[in-house]
């Protein structure tokens, strides 16, 4: 069985790839959103899950990707491909520019600094002429849900492949060492600042690309939706739900929670967010280490896994 386990992933990806030819437009549109959010969760996983730095600035990288693509296409009349690259360059440049100073901060100080960045970025964008000030930008209309779906899937596969590589690499071991004890990592000869900046930059790259795809798909963007801090909160929740610091956890977490919130929104419109909240609270109480840990733990100790968790974390 284990010998063929690696085959499961390509098969899952291929199965997802053919979805647009067998289902309705609604499902494809839901799929694009879910795949993009899963990519964002996977990107957050690199900085938040592996190196343990709770970034609230990932929505900024997403927003810069959104705006970079939109400016390139709507104002400069570049192609979509060049727009994506331009957005990615903006996101990566921002990660480098802010990462180098703020990644010297630790724990809550880092989180607050990234929150500040998120708050400032939407305000700045709303004053920039070429970004359409606070009105926003309208991109050329292009109807091609299947294309956007496949692009989003490719991006998610690329992000997951990158995380799979990180998890097995020396670089990833360094990030985990930083998460577990940064001082000790330093003593072991790890240049912690370089590693953290590299992790943030890779996260920024995938977040910005996701933003670019979303911008062209949705065709209208404004500062409030592009730099929405609640999007960052969703990345965090989905990663924690699936299992931070794992390869597949964030993807599973994002796809499952997207489905849950979609079903709730259509079946129980009024109380949807209440139910969503209950799901999150139950997850935190019963499986604080995420879905993948639940699978392992349930196999080992059955229902006792939940009791043990509640006891161990004294909730």
């Amino acid at each position: 069985m284990n010998r063929y386990r690696w085959l499961a992933l390509p098969i899952a990806a291929a199965a997802l790839a053919v979805v647009p030819w067998f289902t309705s437009d609604t499902i494809v549109q839901y799929g694009i959103n879910a795949l993009l959010v899963a990519t964002l969760a996977q990107a957050w996983n690199i900085i938040g899950g592996f190196s343990g730095y709770p970034s609230f600035g990932n929505s900024v990288f997403y927003g810069l990707g959104t705006y970079g693509t939109a400016i390139a296409m709507a104002q400069l009349h570049w192609s979509f491909g060049s727009g994506l690259v331009f957005g990615a360059v903006l996101g990566v440049a921002c990660a480098l520019l802010f990462g180098i100073p703020i990644l010297r901060l630790r724990g809550p100080y880092f989180a607050i600094a990234t929150l500040g960045l998120a708050a400032v970025m939407s305000a700045i964008t709303a004053t920039v002429e070429i970004a359409g000030k606070n009105i926003g930008l309208i991109l050329p209309l292009f109807r091609g849900d299947t294309l956007f779906y496949e692009l989003s899937l490719i991006l998610l596969v690329a992000a997951t492949g990158t995380v799979a590589w990180i998890a097995r690499s020396r670089f990833g071991a360094g990030l985990v060492a930083i998460r577990e004890d940064e001082d000790a990592a330093q003593v072991m000869g790890i240049n912690t600042t370089t590693y953290k900046v590299a992790a943030l930059t890779v996260a920024a790259l995938f977040s910005a690309l996701a933003g670019g795809i979303h911008a062209y798909w949705i065709t209208f963007i404004d500062p409030a939706s592009a730099f929405d801090p609640s999007l960052n909160v969703r990345m965090v929740i989905m990663t924690l739900f699936g299992g931070p610091g794992t390869v597949l956890g964030p993807v599973l977490g994002a796809l499952i929670l997207s489905a849950v919130s979609e079903v709730l929104a259509s079946q129980a419109t009024g109380v949807a967010s209440l139910f969503y909240g209950i799901v999150i609270v139950a997850a935190v109480l019963l499986m604080p280490k995420g879905l993948l840990d639940l699978v392992q733990g349930f196999r080992d100790s059955g229902w006792r896994y939940f009791v043990d968790n509640v006891r161990r974390y004294r909730i």
Binding site: A177, D183, V187
Partner: peptide, 12 residues
């Protein structure tokens, strides 16, 4: 260096 206070990776 073996640092003061050991600085082990406690959860590993």
């Amino acid at each position: 260096q073996v640092p003061e206070g050991r600085q082990l990776f406690d959860r590993m």
